[in-house]
Design a protein around this nucleic acid. Structure first.
Lengths: 249, 249
DNA sequence: CGCCTGGTTGAGAATCATCAACATCTGTGG
DNA sequence: CCACAGATGTTGATGATTCTCAACCAGGCG
């Protein structure tokens, strides 16, 4: 069915021959306006691999950190395994978003990245990016900017986990996905959640049951309409209010 | 009394005329070995301000991001104010540690930094650091390393908040403080917590009461001995076990 | 000395987790 | 194309952990 599939208006959703210059997402990946020449330079070092299928890894915990990545289409989650063997989901990434920055610290990834659906990924070898960013001031600023965003998102998530109730966490996640869709010029009110309820709960520090119950309750309150993974926000204002204007990264 | 004051073996605890070259903490601040010449270059751009007193701010949320900072002596907390007006403690920083990296994202600090006791702080103007790091490869790597650490710490804290019980969180914090003391060649078993119970609870997503009760219970179990802010770890192994080997950033 | 902040302890309440049963969806092979 | 199995999601009943409210205690500072 999938009548509202978020990607369906893109004729070739996994076309990986696109260059940064004509990529629809460049406004998101490259927020600082670079000169055409600089974009070309960046373009030359980016590798566009084959699409990855649902469940495949882009990298794994402990892998050498060689590249950062951008989502072209699809979505993925990052996660790590805790000392006692449990999975901890640390982030969801949608088209236009950068991931793989964990690992800048010690040269090894501290998370794994796994596709939630068939996805196209841009790979940017880090040492080349670093070299290039030494020469191109705009790019270096941009990199710090992106890294800084990651830190800010994490701090926000920390606050969410530390202070907010289950309702507030779920509402925040919904608002976050919604506004990230809006940034990509997709519907902010009607979208498909690419991740499972289990992943949502894991990410937000809740059990599956609590996630499920909260969704049901929100539906009963006519805040959202739930059809499996398809979500429609019926009362965005009220959700914002519940989320305290805080968006889950 | 303060017989075990962590700083008391430093004859001039707030001497701010020290240079990076002969600073005892350089092994922590500058983990990548820089050439002497490079250290001098770094040295020249670092500003050593007057000591800040307990409760004073080093910077505030929304301030322009101009510098990163290193703790020379004392300690501080970073925090932000949530949309609904509550304080969220986002980190504690001890001597040799770098803070103020929030703000790399959008050029404004997203947190405030406040001294927990009289402290000496090194200020490193960021644009100069950035310039210098363009020239000195070791320094650039070092900066990415430090920023990456920050990301890793945050991810660990996210896991802690998302998965762990009150006992586990408290044990993790104690182990963290302990091992950061050890890194500074101070006692890993007997130290003074510079922050209030309220701050601990805020940071770990717990109420003061829960923190207090947990400390009492740990004492009853002879895991630690508590005398106000003075903590002695009596059974480090058991604490490690409770913390699942996870340290709170 | 007494106030005020910070810390401790207790009783009761609320939220969320756990356990368990059941429903639905997906995708695979007959 | 249907049937089935395993994974994923929903709902209910019960219980544990942690929060809330409240009283009380200790230490520091005017």
């Amino acid at each position: 069915m999938n009548k509202m599939d978020s990607q369906s208006n893109n004729p070739c959703k996994h076309g990986f021959q696109v260059s940064c210059g004509n990529c629809q997402l460049s406004a998101i990946c490259l927020p600082i306006a670079l000169e055409t020449k600089e974009i070309d330079q960046l373009d030359n070092i980016i590798q566009r691999g084959r699409p990855v299928r649902k469940g495949e890894h882009i990298f794994r915990e402990e892998d050498d950190f060689t590249s950062v990545y951008a989502v072209r289409s699809g979505s993925l989650k990052t996660y790590s395994i805790t000392k006692d063997g449990k999975e901890q989901v640390t982030g969801f990434y949608l088209p236009g978003e950068i991931f793989g920055l964990d690992g800048i610290g010690d040269g090894r990834h501290t998370n794994s990245a796994k596709a939630l659906e068939t996805s196209a990924i841009c790979e940017i070898p880090f040492h080349q990016l670093q070299e290039l960013s030494g020469k191109v001031a705009g790019l270096q600023r941009n990199m710090f900017h992106i890294i800084g965003q990651e830190i800010n998102y994490d701090k926000q998530l920390i606050t969410l986990l530390s202070k907010n109730s289950a309702d507030e966490r779920i509402a925040s996640l919904l608002i976050s996905i919604s506004s990230r869709n809006a940034r990509r010029k997709l519907s902010a009110l009607c979208f498909r959640l690419p991740m499972s309820r289990t992943d949502i709960g894991n990410y937000l520090g809740l059990t599956v049951e609590t996630v499920s119950r909260t969704f049901s309750r929100f539906q009963k309150l006519e805040l959202i309409s739930v059809d499996n993974k398809e979500i429609t926000l019926l009362d965005q204002a009220k959700l914002q209010e519940i989320a305290h204007g805080v968006e889950a990264a």
